[in-house]
């Protein structure tokens, strides 16, 4: 038996928003520890890794490990039927071929349940090695989204260049060239408005704009985003999810042909 209760179902709506542009379907692996998801996008350029710890939920029970293959368009249809303040309960029997989503209004006067068929997915799990990154940049997630959106007008690729002084995002194309430089913030009132850089070595890498823009669909999950970079390895774009855990996106860099 699997059962997870979430008083604010808006978190799951935001998670779905954050993955459905990159993934058509995904396997939600449920265990005693929580819910995990790992999947590559269709072109195998990026990888999404989601971790929701069981202790973040208001109630959580998972007697046996359960892998739920889910069509994300179907799940989106169901989650659209939930009010943001509804209490969500997800339930599945062991070895079930369906999962139930139950939404209760705060005053408990409206209760809806939706049964969704699970699908069999041939999932490929990849091992992500522990990496000491040369540069770790933390910045407001809204700022990162704005930069990705602005630069995507100028080219297909964004060059991210990080030094001790700051981080520079650049794009170039038919229109011309664009450069956005962010310095570390000296002092800010709110921690979430800060730009901080931990640098061991300067790094410059090139990435596809399209994927960065897809990652920013997670902006609603966290006020801050963390970018981790090292030469010749994938970029990690991480959004913390409150008391639950995180969503991480890995993006393979582009190389000179």
């Amino acid at each position: 038996m699997f059962e997870a209760r979430l008083v604010q179902c808006s978190m799951l709506k935001k998670v779905l928003e954050a993955i459905k542009e990159l993934l058509n379907e995904a396997t939600f692996d449920c265990s005693d520890a929580g819910i995990q998801l790992q999947a590559m996008d269709n072109s195998h350029v990026s990888l999404v890794s989601l971790n929701l710890r069981s202790d973040g939920f208001d109630k959580y029970r998972c007697d046996r490990n359960l892998s739920m293959g889910i069509n994300l368009a179907s799940m989106t249809k169901i989650m659209k039927c939930a009010g943001n303040d509804d209490v969500l309960t997800i339930k599945a029997q062991d070895n079930a071929d369906n999962v139930m989503f139950m939404f209760e209004s705060q005053n408990q006067e409206k209760v809806s349940d939706y049964d969704m068929k699970l699908i069999n997915l041939d999932q490929e799990h990849l091992g992500i090695p522990e990496t000491d990154y040369s540069c770790i940049i933390k910045m407001p997630s809204g700022e990162f989204a704005r930069i990705c959106r602005d630069l995507s007008q100028f080219g297909e690729s964004v060059v991210i260049s990080c030094t001790k002084e700051g981080v520079k995002f650049s794009a170039a194309g038919d229109v011309g060239a664009a450069n956005i430089k962010l310095a570390q913030t000296a002092n800010v009132d709110k921690e979430e408005e800060a730009v901080t850089i931990e640098m061991q070595e300067p790094v410059t890498l090139t990435f596809a704009c399209r994927y960065l823009n897809s990652f920013t669909k997670a902006t609603a999950l966290s006020p801050q985003v963390q970018l981790s970079m090292s030469a010749d390895v994938p970029l990690v774009v991480e959004y913390k999810i409150g008391d639950f855990g995180h969503i991480r996106y890995y993006l393979a860099p582009k190389i000179e042909e």
Partner: peptide, 14 residues
């Protein structure tokens, strides 16, 4: 011209 690499080049299959 930049070439897009696959994420599979970096992470091993479990």
């Amino acid at each position: 011209k930049n070439k897009q690499q696959s994420i599979r080049n970096f992470f091993k299959k479990k």
